[in-house]
Amino acid sequence: MALPRTTFKTLFGIPRVIYRQPLLFPSTSTSSGILSTRGAYERDYRRPGQAPDTRWPWQKIRFDFSKGVEGIRKHFGLLTDEFVNRFTGPEGKPLINHMLEQTQVQWEFRGPESLNQWIVSSDQEIGGRSGAYIKLGRNNTTCFLYGMLCSTAPRDGETRYSGYCTIRSKQPLGSFDRKKHYDWSTFNTLHMRIRGDGRPWMVNISAETYFSHQRDDIYSYFLYTRGGPYWQDFVTIPFSKFFLSSRGRIQDDQHALWLDKVNSIGFTLGDKADGPFQLEIDFIALCNDHAHTEEFAYELYKRNPEV
């Protein structure tokens, strides 16, 4: 595990390397249970050729006194916050703001701790050679995502395609690791301020689903960057345009995204153009566009294609 981290440091000269889990090494991280889409009793993606994890569930838990102390402090802090914030108003905001707000800045990057809400991963998870890293912009007010895309498929005999880099927000968690969700049902448009290098990206939103077989369902739309030194100020994507896909395949049975329980948002690059990439995000916000009345951009009255 130490080897790749040091090599990346020397290659790119970055102090902060965030990636999910080194591959083909015994997994040491304990956090994968809540970060991945898999539940506690299901297996995560296993590469072809990788030995199965035969440890018992309790062997994966790190029993540590300091971890316990930290956990108690964190969770009881969150619990008190939840109690106290309730007296201010819903979600800690005054009621008048909550009722009248037309815009809401969901993620902004105004400090090093804001990067902890994001997970960066690339096709190294499946054996590819891309690398993606995240850091703050030079004036510490933006999120700078950069790396190298390489779409050579791993030579494991099964994987056919490779070459993606992804950034995904973490699932919000309440006290004692209860799942919380973002409720965006009062908004209808996603608003971003970005600056890219001309590559097309994909915005993915995953919402809470009822059945476990729907856990890979994500709603996606395209995000085109212009490139150049200027910011793209008004990148708005109506939520009605997001289409349902699962495991990278567009589904025939489309449905509009339900915004009351949104788990995470993600940005994916996979345009098969090998080389360096960069994307700078200033903030990600939601707004209520009154001129937009569309509920869903794709046909619902029949299956697509009609069977």
Binding site: E101, Q102, T103, E108, T141, T142, F283, C287
Partner: peptide, 15 residues
């Protein structure tokens, strides 16, 4: 109106 503030509550990035 009261609820017609469409601006975003973020600091501008100085460049």
């Amino acid at each position: 109106d009261l609820g017609d503030d469409d601006s975003f509550d973020v600091d501008d990035v100085e460049e």
